[in-house]
């Protein structure tokens, strides 16, 4: 039976009717209209659907929507404050860290989870944080550089 799920999405209380077995990714994209998490493989192997649940990176194609009830979900759509981009978005833009852009939302959220916990990550920690995210276009190097650059800016800000 379809059930109502309530959770917080980027700071706002939201509710949706989910079918049994429906994933958080499907609820976000198809019921709440937040298409920023991407459906790359739908089997937990590409990272394009990465969102944060209570601050931790989660593959939303594998998480049942029910499991998000009452929790805080963050997506790329909540990253910018009005016209002010998040330092990660700025750094991705300036360092040409996206080509087709399909992996970018997942990369940004995986990177945000890292930087929220650790303002001074090493290169190895950045690589570890995005190692579950597949990118076909960039060769990863500009993405790694962009995350390190955003970390520098965030820690300079204090």
């Amino acid at each position: 039976m379809a059930t109502a799920v309530e959770f917080t999405l980027n700071g706002n209380a939201v509710a949706a009717i989910a079918e049994p077995g429906e994933t958080l990714l499907s609820v976000l994209r198809n019921r709440l209209g937040d298409t920023s998490p991407k459906a790359g493989c739908l089997q937990g192997t590409c990272g394009a659907c990465t969102v944060l649940v209570d601050g931790e990176p989660v593959l939303s194609c594998l998480l049942l929507a029910d499991a998000a009830a009452g929790r805080h979900v963050e997506t790329v759509r909540g990253l910018a404050q009005g016209p002010q981009l998040h330092p990660l978005q700025e750094a991705f833009m300036e360092r040409f860290a996206a080509q087709c852009g399909f992996c970018t939302p997942g990369m940004l959220m995986a990177a945000k989870a890292l930087l929220d916990h650790n303002r001074n990550p090493t290169r190895a920690e950045v690589i570890e944080a995005i190692s579950g995210n597949v990118c076909r276009c960039t060769g990863y190097l500009p993405i790694i550089e962009a995350i390190l650059e955003a970390a520098r800016r965030l820690s300079a800000r204090g």
Binding site: A124, I127, I144
Partner: peptide
């Protein structure tokens, strides 16, 4: 059949270019 078995270099396998 998927990205776990269709192998590609990951971010840690990339050398300086």
């Amino acid at each position: 059949v998927d990205f776990n078995t269709y192998l590609m270099p990951g971010p840690g396998d990339m050398c300086p270019v």
